[in-house]
């Protein structure tokens, strides 16, 4: 079975999957238009698969922020594959390209959807970390909504005591979604807020505690230490917690995202990535390299401003979204 066929079967087979892929198609429509139309242009322009073809492909991938070294590796592999399978027709390369992209993401492992780690019948704690302006607070609002819809009892902890208006912002989300927000005053110790959050979540028998933190650039050592401390407080209060440390990444970010993933992992042992703002024209291609190099999976993607636009990440669906135009053309 061809790769595209498999994908299509997977996402047209049952209604739930279809819904997911529709979201991706919708959210990624701008991304997809530019990305896949470029691949299509490329394929249309070249009858033959030659050096020029690969050079243009390299540019398309670099423009998706995949990163130079990953692209170089990918191109090398593609060249090998093309040779091996003796592909002369550039249209066929399309398939190999997407296959390889998914492969970069999953590596040797099975391609599976990595869900959020939420325990049944006990409190699960999620810590949200990231640089300034990536959308941590908004993501927490969306996650809270999602969990509330699933019938979970959710508590939020306003750990961003630094940025002006951050606590208010989380409170607005709390009111919208209808969940409690544990907060202190601006400028207070974030670890203390989180401690109170844990206690409150325990005493209210909450299912999930979502902890907001202030945005910080990863090269600020003091601030990163502060974050480690916040995590230690959670660890101390609840064995096995935090159950998720989610690094929120802005899809428009370039190669610095790798540095963010590395440094935040060092201080807080990041368990997953939330890729936000994917509804613009940015591609967020760097997540491929991050997963490949640091084995940190993307767990959620922000595909729009609406509260329901936060989706579980599925690399196949992601690629499907990118290539949907091409798939439809093939019919």
């Amino acid at each position: 079975m061809s790769f595209f066929k498999k994908l299509k079967d997977k996402f047209t087979g049952n209604s739930e999957n279809e819904e997911v892929s529709d979201k991706y198609k919708e959210g990624l429509s701008k991304t997809r238009n530019s990305f896949s139309s470029k691949i299509n242009d490329l394929v249309a322009r070249y009858r033959k698969v030659d050096e020029d073809f690969f050079e243009d492909l390299e540019e398309i991938l670099i423009s998706a922020d995949v990163g130079v070294s990953t692209v170089m590796d990918l191109i090398d592999e593609l060249k090998m594959e093309v040779k091996r399978q003796n592909i002369k027709d550039s249209a066929k390369v399309k398939e190999v390209i997407s296959e390889k992209l998914v492969e970069i993401y999953y590596g040797e492992e099975d391609d599976q959807v990595e869900e959020l780690n939420i325990k049944d019948n006990e409190l699960s704690v999620m810590l949200f970390v990231g640089v300034n302006g990536v959308g941590k607070t908004t993501t927490i609002g969306k996650v809270a909504h999602k969990l509330k819809q699933e019938g979970k009892n959710v508590v939020l902890a306003a750990g961003d005591t630094f940025r002006a208006g951050a606590i208010d912002q989380l409170q607005v989300w709390g009111d919208r979604v209808g969940v409690e927000v544990i907060k202190h005053n601006e400028g207070s110790d974030p670890a203390a807020v989180i401690y109170d959050g844990v206690q409150a979540a325990k005493s209210r028998n909450a299912d999930v505690l979502l902890c907001d933190t202030a945005g910080r650039l990863q090269n600020k050592v003091n601030l990163m230490n502060e974050l480690s401390k916040v995590k230690r407080v959670i660890e101390r209060e609840i064995p096995g917690a935090p159950h998720e440390v989610l690094l929120v990444l802005d899809a428009t970010t370039g190669q610095n995202a790798m540095s963010q993933a590395k440094t935040f992992s060092e201080s807080t042992d990041v368990s997953g990535i939330v890729l936000t703002k994917l509804d613009g024209t940015a591609k967020g291609g760097i997540v491929l390299a991050i997963r490949n190099e640091l084995q940190i999976p993307v767990k959620l993607v922000g595909l729009g401003e609406k509260v329901t636009d936060l989706q579980t990440f599925d690399a196949n669906a992601f690629v499907y979204g990118l290539f949907a135009d091409m798939l439809e053309e093939q019919e």
């Binding site: 970010t253 370039g254 613009g280 024209t281």
Partner: peptide, 28 residues
């Protein structure tokens, strides 16, 4: 945002085309 990747050209070009910017501030 100074960390913006390849998409910076699309963003800047688009804002400039629609608003005719007079300058840029690079943050972070």
């Amino acid at each position: 945002d100074a960390m913006t990747g390849q998409d910076a050209v699309n963003v800047a070009d688009s804002f400039n085309e629609q608003l005719d910017l007079t300058g840029v501030v690079l943050t972070k």
